[in-house]
């Protein structure tokens, strides 16, 4: 068996450091998710409204965030705002801002898609039964929208978690950055550590994201119309 350098993990506090790096990544994504979900729902509902100005503004926002690579957004917020406005945002705060902007944009598009996928007839037959506008939403439209939305938004959450691996580029010490530091520090003693350490990082991401994906798949199956 080739030496994967896994013994490096057991040296000092290396494993603990990796886990705390993972926690940093999780913290950024969880806060961003907590901000994006409600904001995304709000913007998604607004996107289905008829007001052309609101729709145009939201459209531009969505396209802008989508077209920009996340890395560019991170640089823009972290370095760009320092130069332009003299703000001194920490790497973690910049990451949370970028991931919230991105998550909100993606979420709003999912919400919009789920809302417009409800056939017009669902509104009409509710109306014909005498349900008021708010009853129609509460008992007919929202339950159906949520069923379509939950698997999609769970997938978005796993994408957000995975993409936090980019924040090391603006100096946030998350799990991947810790892995690099460990490999660097043991370059002489265990030159083969890279494979073992990155494999561990892979497993850590897997342990976090896999159960979430499974949940999404299960819900999707359960609610299939």
């Amino acid at each position: 068996m080739p030496d994967l350098g896994l013994n490096v993990l057991l040296k000092g506090k290396n494993m603990q450091r990796l886990l705390s790096g993972l926690w940093t990544a999780m913290r950024i994504s969880l806060i961003a998710v907590a901000i994006s979900m409600p904001l995304g729902i709000l913007l998604g509902v607004l996107m289905t409204k008829k007001n052309p100005v609101v729709r145009a503004v939201l459209r531009v926002y969505l396209e802008f965030i989508r077209i920009m690579p996340q890395m560019v957004l991170l640089f823009l917020v972290f370095f760009g705002t320092t130069g332009a406005f003299g703000w001194n945002l920490s790497g973690e705060l910049s990451s949370i801002i970028v991931f919230s902007l991105w998550g909100t944009a993606e979420m709003s598009d999912l919400v919009r898609g789920a809302l417009i996928s409800i056939p017009k007839h669902q509104y009409e037959s509710s109306e014909a039964l005498g349900l008021s506008r708010s009853q129609t939403f509460a008992y007919v439209i929202i339950p159906q929208t949520v069923r379509r939305l939950i698997p999609l938004s769970i997938n978005l959450i796993t994408r957000m978690i995975k993409t936090t691996s980019l924040v090391l580029m603006i100096g946030v010490v998350e799990v991947l950055k810790v892995a690099q530091q460990i490999i660097e520090a043991n370059r002489m003693a265990s030159p083969n550590a890279a494979f073992g350490i990155y494999l561990t990082v892979f497993l850590l991401y897997f342990i976090v994201c896999w159960p979430i994906s499974m949940l999404a798949r299960r819900l999707e199956k359960k609610w299939k119309d």
Binding site: H121, Q144, W223
Partner: peptide, 13 residues
């Protein structure tokens, strides 16, 4: 007024 439509339109959930 009770109305029945061509496409049934039951609530799928």
């Amino acid at each position: 007024i009770g109305m029945v439509f061509q496409s049934y339109d039951l609530f799928p959930h």
